[in-house]
Write a protein that binds this DNA or RNA. Structure first.
Lengths: 136, 136
DNA sequence: GCAATCTGTTACTGTTTCAGTAACTAATAC
DNA sequence: GTATTAGTTACTGAAACAGTAACAGATTGC
C-alpha cells in the first residue's frame, strides 16, 4: 500500500508535547525530534488543532500544547483527526452494467469495510497517549 | 492515503468465481466484470492461488475456481492473501538519538498498530464470501 | 509603532507506489 | 502440433506523499 506515515507523525507530535508537559513547544522543536522540517509538523499540527486535541499560540513564546491531559487523549481521536481516507478502499471503476456481480460488489463491500475500520478504531480507542508515554 | 484497491479487486475476483460456481472461469471473463485487463486479474489471482483459496488450470477449458465452498472463505483470509504491508505504518526516519521520545516512539507504536490491524482482521473474519454473495 | 517570533497555508519538487498494459514462458487440451 | 490458458516480468503514466520554501497573519516585548 501507499506510504502515508501522517498518523505516526501526528502521534509523535503529541508525544513530544506530552514530554514537555505544560510548556509551549514550537514546531522547530518537534521537527528536531521527528527528524523532519517545521513546515510538515505545522501541517499536521493544524489538523490536531482543528480536532481540538492541541492549543496553539502564534508569536514569540508561542507554540503548541496539549488541550487535555494525556490520559484523556486516545489514539482513536488522533486517527479521526488526521486519517481522512478509509484504509480499505473499494474500486471506483465503472461497473459492467450487464454483470450482477460487478454492479453489486461495491455496495456489498462498503459496509463490511466500514465495519472493519470501525473495529480498528475501537481497538485504538483503548490506548491513551498516557500509555504511549509510559512505553517510551 | 494511497489508492491501493488490490483487496477490493481480489474480493471481486472471488465473487465472480462464486457466481459461476463450479465452472472454470478465465481471467478474461473476470477482467470484464471488474472492468480491467486480464493481466492484472492474473497477478492478483496468483496470490489467491498461493494462499490456497483458488485452484487454477492452464490451457484450453482452463481458468480458475474456488478451492472451497463460499461459506468456508472469510474476508480475513483474502486479506492475508493479498495485503502485504501493514495499514498503519510507523516512520522509518532515523531517530534523533539524544531525544528519548524520538528513540522510543517507533517501538511504542508498533505493538499498538499491530493490535489495531489484528482487530480489523478479526472483524473481517466474521464475513464469508457467502455473505457477500447474498448481498449482491 | 517596530522588529522578532511563531502559526497557518500554499505551492512546488522528487520519490514512491499503484493500475494498467504488453509481451513472454510454461502448461494443457484437443 | 496448434490453440488456449495461467504465470511472470518489464514498462508507462498517474496519483499521493514527504520534504521544502516562502509568504501571510497573529502575538509578544521593546
Amino acid at each position: 500500500m501507499g506510504y502515508d506515515i501522517t498518523y505516526a507523525t501526528a502521534t509523535h507530535i503529541l508525544a513530544v508535547m506530552a514530554f514537555y508537559e505544560d510548556e509551549w513547544v514550537t514546531s522547530s522543536t518537534m521537527a528536531e525530534s521527528i527528524q523532519t522540517n517545521p513546515g510538515l509538523v505545522r501541517r499536521v499540527l493544524s489538523q490536531l488543532s482543528d480536532a481540538g486535541l492541541v492549543i496553539t499560540k502564534p508569536g514569540p513564546q508561542g507554540g503548541a500544547r496539549l488541550a487535555r491531559s494525556t490520559n484523556e487523549i486516545t489514539l482513536a481521536e488522533v486517527y479521526e483527526a488526521v486519517v481522512e481516507q478509509p484504509v480499505l478502499k473499494t474500486s471506483n471503476r465503472e461497473p459492467h452494467e450487464s454483470c450482477r456481480v460487478s454492479r453489486g460488489i461495491g455496495g456489498a463491500l462498503e459496509g463490511v469495510f466500514r465495519d472493519a475500520e470501525e473495529a480498528m478504531k475501537d481497538q485504538l480507542q483503548k490506548t491513551t497517549l498516557d500509555q504511549i508515554m509510559k512505553k517510551i
